[in-house]
């Protein structure tokens, strides 16, 4: 009796050990290269930098600076970036939803082939995508060229490049292909007999869409929001290349304070502020969607 108990205990112990051993590499990476660095970021946000030396002063000056430096420029930039991110999210979902709907409910053969084809442009890195869009909407891009060729415009339209509008447009067009997938997944899950039943009961197509398809595909919409919103908050590549001086986003301020300004503590405070907002949004979205739904959409 006692021997078998001991063996049982030993087995349990070795199971625990093997669980620990299998998890430790991944957890090491998370702790050592994410959690500890984030902790240091938090610590530095209370410090100060004189020249290239970091001095532990432990005050909140950097956080006050986020709100007050240069007449509140940074906080206005934050609000502007938030608005741009929201616009990008709404725009890219609006563009991608009909496509997901079409693939799920209208295409019968080779659905997955079409899906992979749709995701293709997302596989290209942002920098190259921005360069590609410059070929379309830039000063010597396709639209200006065609416009002049057809005599619609007398000189290139300069409003299309180097402003916040170009940044939002490129981000929308860049994200849209990727968003088809999560929305497709939740549209696929809808029981098509519900639509037939509604049709039998006399519901018009528009009503069927608003009362059945749209509410049942809402998890996909939330997952899509999750995919776009958080990376767009911290975006700095597209604004740096296509935004000019008026299209700068909050991410550019963070980037500058680490790469060109050598203002690490202030940059840390800017990052922490961004992180807290992102975490709040992420938590809300995960609460609504659930981790399982997020997993299914991958």
């Amino acid at each position: 009796m006692s021997i078998s108990n001991k063996i049982l205990k030993l087995i349990r112990k070795s199971e625990k050990l093997s669980i620990g051993m299998q998890l430790s590499p991944a957890m090491f990476w998370i702790v050592f290269f994410l959690l500890i660095p984030l902790g240091i970021l938090v610590i530095y946000s209370f410090w100060e930098m004189v020249g290239t030396r970091l001095i532990p002063v432990w005050d909140l000056r950097n956080y006050v600076d986020v709100f007050t430096r240069v007449g509140g420029m940074y906080i206005r930039l934050f609000v502007k970036s938030l608005a741009m991110s929201a616009l990008v999210t709404v725009g890219s979902i609006a563009l991608a939803y009909p496509v997901a709907y079409f693939v799920s409910l209208r295409i019968e053969k080779y659905k997955y082939t079409w899906l992979i084809l749709l995701m293709g442009p997302y596989l290209v890195c942002w920098v190259i995508l921005v360069l590609g869009w410059k070929m379309v909407i830039g000063y010597s891009g396709l639209l200006n060229y065609l416009g002049q060729l057809l005599g619609l415009i007398s000189e290139p339209m300069s409003w299309m490049w180097n402003n916040w509008w170009a940044v939002v447009f490129i981000l929308i067009m860049g994200w849209a292909p990727w968003l088809v997938l999560p929305m497709f997944v939740s549209l696929e899950k809808i029981d098509k007999s519900l639509l037939e039943a509604a049709a039998d009961l006399g519901a018009k197509p528009m009503k069927r869409f608003l009362r059945i398809t749209l509410p049942l595909s809402s998890p996909g919409l939330l997952v899509a929001t999750f995919f776009v919103l958080i990376p767009t908050f911290g975006e700095f590549v597209t604004p740096a290349l296509a935004g000019g001086s008026r299209g700068v986003m909050y991410g550019n301020a963070i980037d500058a304070s680490f790469t060109s300004m050598m203002a690490w503590p202030f940059g840390s405070a800017l990052s922490i502020f961004l992180m807290i907002i992102s975490l709040i949004v992420a938590t809300i979205l995960i609460r609504i969607v659930g981790l399982e739904k997020l997993m299914e959409s991958l």
Binding site: A26, M27, I30, F33, L34, L35, I36, P37, L38, I40, L41, Y44, I230, P231, F233, G234, E235, F236, G251, I254, D255, F258, W264, G267, S268, S271, L274, M275, S278, L279, A282, L291
Partner: peptide, 22 residues
């Protein structure tokens, strides 16, 4: 499970910067 998902929840810029200063 949640901590392994963490890198997905932060903007890439914050992840990059914190590793850099570390």
């Amino acid at each position: 499970t949640y901590s392994i998902m963490l890198p997905m929840l932060f903007p890439g810029i914050v992840v990059g910067i914190s590793i850099l200063i570390f």
